Simulated scan of single mutants.
Amino acid sequence: MLTLTSASSALTLFPECKTQRRRFSISAAADYKFPSFLPKQMEEIKDPFARKLATRIERLPVNVSFSEKSIMSSCVKPLIQSNQNPVVLLHSFDSSCLEWRYTFPLLEEAGLETWAIDILGWGFSNLERIKSCDVASKREHFYQLWKSYIKRPMTLVGPSLGAAVAVDFAVNHPEAVENLVLIDASVYAEGTGNLAKLPRAVAYAGVSILKSFPLRLYTTFLAFKGVSFDTGLDWVNIGKLHCLYPWWEDATVSFMISGGYNVSRQIDQVMQKTLIIWGEDDQIISNKLAVRLHFELPNSNIRQIPDCGHLPHVEKPDSAARLILEFMQNHSCQKKAQLAPTEEVVY
């Protein structure tokens, strides 16, 4: 049965969660000490939430088969360890863990063990020696990071192209994924996350366009509703920080010429319980695809966030956090019910 509702119900398992609506006015931020590997342009970012989360980004060594040396891989590690399995946050196409600057602290305040992971080829990892950033490489890298550091089945959250990454990973490594949350998912051929195989010269030309400030500014105002011009400028600068690394261009071209993600045929293989979240006013991926995804996923629920564009965890972090928390609450209750011993009735 199709259940399409808005995010409005109350939390009971996480009473300490402060999900008041964030105001996105950009003002002068306090001094923060950023990791030395971040681009120096991080100092120019005004958004205090981005600045604060950036101080927690670190690099962890990850061993993979396609590199002789460990990849120093960027992520934000949790401050707490919970009895529940962790929540692991991916990001969208050509982005970074800073995409979660508003929702990450809400999930932590609720007591969840929360990770934010940079997908291989994007974010703030050191990819100076990496020659391949195709789907198989991204999958292996993420699996080795999970195996080395996370080590428990996770609730894996993927927005936009990150949803395709999550679906691919859940199908190939089901032991690592307990539940899925897919946000405005780009998982069909007509979605923005699936690329035709491109000649190398065309791919490099496309990467130059991706890096351009006007395109990113246009995309920002297309993706979000009611964002002020000053805030939009700052968000663009946050989104393109990782493009300043010398290896970003080669890594992105490697991904593009490989064909990118095409997971539409994997959808019916997803066995994990899945929450689909969609912005009601998404101008990038039609919410008709949300309904299609709900019908094709064997074990899914769908929730819609009103007055919201393409990335709810950026635009409506209170609503996004609440839905993720409710989803985990319901799953936790179901697990407890299944594990509870049944009473034997003797007549």
Results as ranks from 00 to 15, higher is better:
M154I: 02
A30V: 11
Q269I: 07
L145I: 03
I150Q: 00
F295W: 15
V345F: 15
F295L: 15
L145N: 03
S300R: 04
N330T: 11
Y204N: 08
Q81V: 09
N83V: 11
G191N: 10
S160I: 00
Q20K: 14
A185C: 07
A29K: 07
L90Q: 00
Y261V: 00
E109Q: 10
L2H: 13
L311E: 04
A170D: 04
Y204D: 05
A340Y: 14
A50S: 09
Q41V: 07
H173K: 09
D134S: 10
G259F: 07
I80N: 12
L241C: 03
Q20A: 14
A164D: 02
I117A: 05
I26F: 13
S92Y: 11
F49Y: 14
V181C: 02
T114P: 01
P341L: 08
Y218N: 13
C308F: 06
R303E: 10
D31Y: 14
K211Y: 10
G279K: 01
L293N: 00
T252E: 10
H294T: 09
F34D: 01
H173A: 05
S82N: 07
Y218I: 12
K77V: 05
I71W: 06
A166G: 01
I277S: 06
G121E: 02
E326S: 15
V181M: 02
E58F: 10
L293K: 00
D318T: 08
K147R: 12
E296A: 13
K131H: 12
R51E: 04
R21N: 13
V165S: 05
L325K: 03
W278F: 09
L53M: 08
A321I: 00
A10D: 15
E99C: 06
G239H: 07
A223H: 09
P298F: 10
R200D: 08
A290F: 09
D184Y: 04
V87A: 00
S332P: 09
S67F: 10
L89W: 01
K273G: 03
Y149C: 03
I267W: 08
N194C: 14
T19S: 14
I130Y: 06
G260N: 05
Y261G: 01
Q338V: 11
T220F: 10
A337S: 15
G191E: 04
I209Q: 11
A337P: 09
V346G: 11
P246R: 06
V263Q: 01
V207E: 06
P35H: 07
R21Q: 13
V227M: 12
V165T: 07
E140F: 10
K40G: 11
T55H: 11
K46G: 11
L198V: 07
E296N: 15
K69Q: 13
W247T: 04
P306N: 13
S73D: 08
A50I: 01
S65I: 04
T219V: 15
L180N: 02
P214C: 08
N262I: 04
K288M: 13
S27Q: 12
Q269N: 13
I150F: 01
F169D: 00
N126T: 10
R23Y: 15
H294E: 11
L311C: 09
L98A: 02
V157G: 00
K147L: 08
I267A: 04
A170H: 07
D31L: 15
A185V: 02
L120Q: 03
W248T: 04
E109P: 03
L289S: 13
T219W: 14
P298H: 11
Q334H: 15
H313E: 01
